[in-house]
Design a protein around this nucleic acid. Sequence first.
DNA 1: CGAATGTCTGTTGTCAACAGTTGGCGATGG
DNA 2: CCATCGCCAACTGTTGACAACAGACATTCG
Lengths: 231, 231
Amino acid sequence: MAARRDTAALAPVENVTLWERVYTHLREQILDNTLPPGTVLSEVPLAASLGVSRGPIREALGRLAAEGLVTVRPRRGAVVSALTHEEFMQAYQVREALETLAIRLAVPNLTDDDVDRIDAIVDRQVLALGRDDIDGFFVLNSSFHQLFVDVSRNTTLQDMYRQLIGHMGRYQMRSVALRGTVRRSVAEHRAIARACRARDAGRAERLLRNHIRVPQRTLEAASHEEVVLKR
Amino acid sequence: MAARRDTAALAPVENVTLWERVYTHLREQILDNTLPPGTVLSEVPLAASLGVSRGPIREALGRLAAEGLVTVRPRRGAVVSALTHEEFMQAYQVREALETLAIRLAVPNLTDDDVDRIDAIVDRQVLALGRDDIDGFFVLNSSFHQLFVDVSRNTTLQDMYRQLIGHMGRYQMRSVALRGTVRRSVAEHRAIARACRARDAGRAERLLRNHIRVPQRTLEAASHEEVVLKR
DNA sequence: CGAATGTCTGTTGTCAACAGTTGGCGATGG
DNA sequence: CCATCGCCAACTGTTGACAACAGACATTCG
């Protein structure tokens, strides 16, 4: 009974419509790279494998296309879209703009709990690094950056950031001296956390901007082959 | 050849699919405020009035919903969405971030022709102002800001800006000493144009940021009623 | 008289079928 | 042997119909 209440409470009506479930399912698969870029998404096989009709499939594909995760060429079907090296760099520039805005807006809103939460994330990153849990590290990294967007209380910003991360989140650096970069990244997070505790928005913004520019500069010189897919 | 390439690039086969035409049609009507916020968009009447089935209507509404121009509550239909005063202010913050990024990226790319084009826009704004053509003024204003986004050559930025303008473009200030603000706006455009001709990205960015913040500050004090719909 | 409940209508969500188009594959001619 | 033309298969775009749900209204019971 308790368990039933939990599931009910966590998901009041967990995705009412069919196409929403299809959309969520496909979106997760794309972001997990279970469906790597270039995969063709034909409606009939999808409908068959998911046990629904083509209607909800079309609706879900339409939403994913509007989000930019798949591209559909009329009469030619949908394929999971990929970012070129150049587009990825451009997305990084937008990310810098959005995140610096986010932290500028967020710092004045930060509660003491929020600041503690930031520190906790960085602490857990150190732990994850200690046991070579790279995947866990990246999850925490996302949480760190997402937190400021959430606290900014700017819904437009939140929507756009979600969309942007949907494009970029699939790619992760593998080579380029990952270990060293990662340690430096944690140190920068720590510095940003300190600026947040001091409620110094300007300093936090400056630190975050430089923090984001590090991989941006590294990538600038690297070829596309060095930016590989997760897993 | 150049002309043919232009028209071909602008409209290769003027909207192949039905739902695209429906989407474009509805989008224009919403942006023109022919369909003001709050209008309910029922599928059957729309399908009847446009002479198509419900399928393309649904697809178009889905895209508009993904873009945020309409909100659909499952089983309750679609409604043209409105921005609250607060959301509008938040959108302005995002716009500031995106446009400052745009001009920073654009200035190094500016050709001499581009600079001439900027001056031409400002010149025409002066003319429009001289004959009290407020609507024309606002169109030119949009062109001015759009130009930097175009020249930035950042497709992610362009997509997001298009989406943002879709949300904000429907609203226009009417009261709040419009005339005086407009004259000041042109002067600021002129200053930005000068910075562009000098290829001074930093100065252009600073001027643009302040330029965007003017209506932002004015709106901050104003109530929502003073931000009325175009026409 | 007020509140709860049952019905009823209008709408959306979903499905299966039809038609048009695209791209590939093979046949034919040079 | 290569290029061109025409057919075929598969897929998408579109349609109309069916079923389920949300809200409104009227009815009934406390």
